[in-house]
């Protein structure tokens, strides 16, 4: 479990704290989504979870290991993988296999074990055919898969995904999201997905809305999607289908339940097939 208790963080030269007094628990094998407008503190939160940033106040601990103790940082980073938004700024090797091997090499594993992990991780993300390929010639989605494999090769217990889809097209997003869910089911890895898109966040078990460095709301996807105008206030665009239902209900005499998520049920309500 990752536990944050009373965590605040201010960047050096920052005028206001980026994170203010956040307390939160993330269970092993949980899938949570963190949402909020640009600059709300989401990415700062992500970097606090794996000890890349250390809290100014409060404490972050991963499975009981506090990030305040320097000797815990290595085990924490082994447990908590962090996937960044832009694959281009995290790929550092000239060959796919070197890229994936980088983490295990840092853990000081035996060459045979590294080889084993590289092969397994690339298979998990279906990129085993690209082992000798230069990463920078791959497509955005493929690059992000390689980054993902690099984290999986370290056999993490938690994956923090910081807007991993922002450079991808809709198909790339869908594929990658499917992959994340598969990792969770097969490897029991907990997922923390940071995203702007409520559509993507709906896949999680809990959604946390961060605003102004603080937790604004924690709820299930069903709770969050029916927040209506409140969502817009925290910079989150409602689901397209919610917008549509809202627009329908604006017409006098129409009352469609706000919690419908799939089109077929909506169409059935509008026009019950006889």
């Amino acid at each position: 479990m990752i536990r944050l208790s009373g965590v605040s963080y201010t960047y050096p030269h920052g005028e206001r704290p980026a994170i203010k007094n956040i307390s939160l628990g993330i269970n092993g094998n949980e899938f949570i989504a963190i949402m909020g407008r640009n600059g709300s503190g989401k990415s700062t939160l992500a970097r606090l979870l794996n000890g890349l940033l250390l809290p100014g106040q409060g404490d972050v601990s991963v499975d009981g290991l506090s990030s305040s103790r320097p000797e815990n940082l290595l085990p924490i980073r082994k447990k908590v993988g962090l996937l960044f938004p832009d694959p281009d700024s995290q790929l550092l090797a000239n060959l796919v296999e070197e890229e994936v091997a980088f983490g295990p090499e840092n853990l000081g594993l035996e060459p045979a074990e590294i080889r084993n992990r590289v092969d397994t991780a690339l298979k998990m993300v279906s990129m085993e055919d690209y082992i000798k390929y230069p990463p920078y010639l791959l497509s955005g989605g493929q690059k992000q898969r390689i980054c993902m494999a690099s984290l999986l090769a370290m056999q993490p217990d938690y994956l923090i995904l910081d807007e991993p889809f922002s450079m991808l097209d809709p198909r790339g997003r869908k594929d990658l999201l499917t992959l994340f869910k598969k990792m969770r089911e097969q490897q029991g890895i907990a997922l923390v997905l940071i995203t702007h898109s409520l559509e993507e966040a709906m896949q999680a078990e809990r959604i946390i809305i961060v605003d102004n460095g603080q937790i604004h709301t924690i709820g299930t996807p069903a709770d969050i999607m029916t927040m209506g105008a409140q969502l817009t206030q925290v910079g989150i665009e409602p689901l397209e289908i919610s917008n549509f239902i809202g627009e329908l209900n604006r017409n006098p005499g129409v009352k469609i339940p706000a919690d419908i998520t799939d089109i077929e049920s909506l169409v059935d309500i509008l026009c019950p097939s006889s």
Partner: peptide
């Protein structure tokens, strides 16, 4: 690209 809902709109 990369903007939140409000920025996009």
């Amino acid at each position: 690209a990369g903007l939140d809902g409000e920025g996009r709109r």
